[in-house]
Design a binder for these strands. Sequence first.
DNA 1: CGATCAATTGAGTCTCTTCAATACGCGTGG
DNA 2: CCACGCGTATTGAAGAGACTCAATTGATCG
Lengths: 244, 244
Amino acid sequence: MVERLELRSRLDSESRAALMSLPYTRRTLEPDSYLVREGDPPHYCSAILDGFAFRQRLTGEGRRLILSIHMPGEFVDLENLYLELSDHSVQALTRLEVACVPRRAIETLSNECPQAGAAMWTQTLIESSIAREWAVNVGRRDARARIAHLLSEFALRLETAGLGEALRWTLPMTHEQIADACGLTPIHVSRILKAFAGDGLIVRDRGAVRILDRRRLAEIGDFTARYLHIPQRDGSDLPGVPAH
Amino acid sequence: MVERLELRSRLDSESRAALMSLPYTRRTLEPDSYLVREGDPPHYCSAILDGFAFRQRLTGEGRRLILSIHMPGEFVDLENLYLELSDHSVQALTRLEVACVPRRAIETLSNECPQAGAAMWTQTLIESSIAREWAVNVGRRDARARIAHLLSEFALRLETAGLGEALRWTLPMTHEQIADACGLTPIHVSRILKAFAGDGLIVRDRGAVRILDRRRLAEIGDFTARYLHIPQRDGSDLPGVPAH
DNA sequence: CGATCAATTGAGTCTCTTCAATACGCGTGG
DNA sequence: CCACGCGTATTGAAGAGACTCAATTGATCG
């Protein structure tokens, strides 16, 4: 189950075995409960087995920005591996199953098996890349594009994780969460989602958003996939993303 | 000269020696010239010896967001070490002296000397943390606070690099660059800087901003230092930052 | 069947943007 | 040394996108 973590890096069997033999404890978390709290020293890194999580930071005035969404197969909190104190929180978006690995075990692994370390390092680099795109999104796009971009990124990452059909392309976020992910107010998010629904791009059911037309959302959201650094086997386009 | 890179990580003499013996070539770049171009495969990682650089990304509509500022003693483009294509550009902000290290040499080093690898990994984690804060800044603060935050971060990092006095606390950015760093227009930046100057927080000379009152800027900008992960020897406050 | 939380709708406001014109600083060349 | 040109900064006025406030609806759950 922890194996599909490293889709993106070449691992030999030895590294793979080392990763597989990491000690862990399984935990289940309810929505909104904290995996990591801002200001805590990090003791564990968790790999998501099932469900979604998100990262967030608060301003001094108590305003929130959601920084990223995490899916099954991803490690959360490798970001704090070598840092003293966590600079942000990680919370469960849905009911969440995680495998908690002691931080020390990961440090030891990456010392003894540089290839596995490089694979994890690579994941943190990809997450930085996503963070940069996120900043561009909230900093330089209008509200429609921000939301469309969020949906597009989610859809493509869902697909990459092999979960698109299974979850029926449903983003389990409330308007308030979407607003905090895009630097908007929930009221404005509501209006824009309504317009998207009217245009047949999405449907809304029970506080979640189901994606219907990825292609058009990608256009509206100025979405391109390069920043996700998804390995390309062949030269073909990624689905739902306009050519370059 | 490359030695001061690793202020934040504990390195034994062996790792230090390995880092010091990395092969490199020295290059000088004029302002605005590219160190890394979006879409290029990364062949080198550069350590800044003198001057400032910045990272940027463009939207499909050609709008720019500046993602970070880099100072002497920092590696740029470790971010692309294990990635196929660069997802952003790095440009010289001022005249720039860099030491270019072949990517392969760094990979080899981090395989053979995990401690040095961890030190570099740590630097990339800190940069992600800065990127997250940057996203919060453009996503959830008003224009005044964004600019004040940018100035505060710059001031503290200058100091950490030991360059505050030497450079007289001067941020060598045009209004347009500040605007692109904060997700604003240069016109609005101009107005706000004028107000800051009127309040005695800064002075402007020749398209650069000199910082006068760090403490007040930090308040206005909702600036706290945790996200920079600057190692604290003693329990004392960082200068120019309000006590938590 | 209230209670509660999320979403919706409308009206008015404000920050920041856009557009346009002008001024300034600085290097170049006459 | 001054005129010219260019990039950057400034200023004003008008407009737009997103926000705030407030009231209403809707869904879910005990």
